[in-house]
């Protein structure tokens, strides 16, 4: 084997080896790399009981209940398999609304309500002008889809 071919082989093997190593390390750390848990994972007990964690889901239509005084608000998040009630006191991001994806940082309390100390809005990868969005929503409403806005998948 010529020296050049040898160098090529060594390089290819090194890169491949590193890729495999990285892959293994990442799968091992997968749990920590997951940015949030879904309501289903929380329901199944996969999320920590007494430590803060992040919960991600879609805000259920009609579930937003603002407290009469102060900034407190209740709302429900879903992953279309399970739901979880969230309570948050604070300023909500601009994009927060029904049907929007959110990621909340906080902890479960004794009654199973997720008390959040931070709520971030998560938006999807779709970009369109308002007229198109309205047309899509109208189309969905006509065909009887349950969530009327094209806002956000997780």
């Amino acid at each position: 084997m010529t020296p050049r071919r040898k160098r090529l082989l060594i390089i290819c093997l090194s890169v491949a080896g590193l890729a495999i190593a990285a892959g293994l390390i990442l799968t091992a750390f997968e749990k920590n790399l997951m940015y949030f848990y879904s309501p289903t994972e929380v329901a199944e007990g996969a999320a920590p009981e007494s430590r803060p964690f992040r919960l991600g889901g879609m805000v259920v239509d009609g579930s937003i209940l603002r407290q009469p005084q102060g900034l407190g608000v209740f709302f429900t998040v879903t992953d279309y398999a399970h739901e979880r009630v969230v309570y948050y006191e604070g300023i909500l991001p601009d994009l927060f609304r029904e049907g929007q994806g959110i990621v909340a940082n906080g902890q479960l309390n004794d009654t199973g309500v997720f008390v959040a100390n931070e709520v971030l809005a998560k938006h999807d990868e779709n970009y369109m002008p308002p007229e198109v969005a309205d047309a899509v929503a109208a189309g969905k409403a006509r065909s009887g889809a349950s969530d009327g806005t094209p806002a956000g998948n997780l």
């Binding site: 940015y35 879904s38 990868e125």
Partner: peptide
């Protein structure tokens, strides 16, 4: 795609 992230998926 591999992990749950705040950043949305590819457009």
């Amino acid at each position: 795609e591999w992990w749950s992230t705040l950043h949305q998926g590819p457009t």
